[in-house]
Amino acid sequence: MIDEQMAVFVGSGLRLAVPIIFAATGEMLSERAGVLNLSLDGMMLMSAFTAALASWATGSPLIGVAAGVLVATAVAAVQAVLSVTLRANQLVVGIGFNILALGSTTFLYREIFGPLSRDPIPGFAQLNLPWLAGIPVIGPALANQTGLAYVSILMVVVTWLILKYTSFGLAVRAVGEDPRAADKAGISVAKTRYLGVLYAGILAGLGGAFMSVADSNTFTENMTKGAGYLAITAVIFGGWNPWYTLAACLLFGFATALQFLVPALQLDVPVALLLLLPYLLALVAIAGLVGKSRQPSALTIPFERGG
C-alpha cells in the first residue's frame, strides 16, 4: 500500500519536474550569457496552448510539440530584440510577456475550445522500458514516462556539453561575465545573447508542450501556474550549474507532488499549505544560498558598445 503510493509519488514528482527541467536548463544557458527571461512562464504557457491546439487540429502530438516550440521561440525572439537590442529592463519585459501570454491563451482557449474543452487531446503514449522497471520502488515510475520526459534529461547533458566543450559555450560564459572584454576579443555580444535567449525559448517551449500533450492531454487556463518562476528560481538555487539546477528542479517537482501524496496517506495537513510549499522552498533556497554562489556578473545588464 505504502509502496504503491510511493511509486505514484515518485512518478508524479518526476512528471511535475520535467517542464521545470526543460525551462530551467534553457534559462540557465541564457543567464550565463547575461539575459534573464522572466517571460519563461509566458513562453511555456503559450507553448502549452499552441501544442494542445496543433495536436488537437492535426491529431499528431509531435506536430503539437513542434508548433509549441515554434511559438515559444518566436516569443523569445521578441524578448531578445527588447532585452539585447533595445536594452529594455529585462524583468519588466518578462512580466509584460507573462500578462500577454495569460491573456491571449485564456482568450483563444475560450474562443476555440470553449464548448469542446472536455475532450482530451491526442498525446504521447508512455514508454515502458523493461530495463528501468526492474529497479525497486522507483523503477516503475522511471519506466512509465513519455519519451519527452527522457528528452529533458538529454537536454541537461547537451546543455552541459555545450557550455563546457564548445566555442559557443565559451562565448556564452565570456559574454555573461565580461561583455566588454568578450567584445574586444571579437565575440559578438549581441549574437551570443540572441542565441542564448532563443535556446531558452526552445527549451521553455518543450517544457510547456510537455505539460499539455505529454502530461495531462488537455489545456487549462493558466496551466503553468508559475512553473516558469520556479524554473528561474531553480537556476539561482542550482548556482548556474546544469547538474545542481537539475537537482533543484527535481526537488521542486517532488515538493509539488506532495499535495497528492499527503492526502493519499491520510495525513492531516491542509492542502493549501502543500500548495505553497514549493514556493516557500524556493524562497528559502534563494535567500539562503545566493550568497554562496556567484551569479554571472553581467546578468540583466544590457551591453552598449563604448558606453
Binding site: A88, V92, G103, F107, P302
Partner: peptide
C-alpha cells in the same frame, strides 16, 4: 472574454519597456 483587457495590458507593458531607450539616456539596470 475579459482576457482581451489582459492582452492590452501585456502589450502596454512590453511597448513601454521597449521604448525606454527613447526616454532614458542612461543604461538602466
Amino acid at each position: 472574454p475579459s482576457a482581451v483587457v489582459l492582452i492590452c495590458q501585456g502589450l502596454i507593458v512590453i511597448v513601454i519597456a521597449g521604448s525606454a531607450i527613447l526616454t532614458n539616456r542612461k543604461v538602466t539596470r
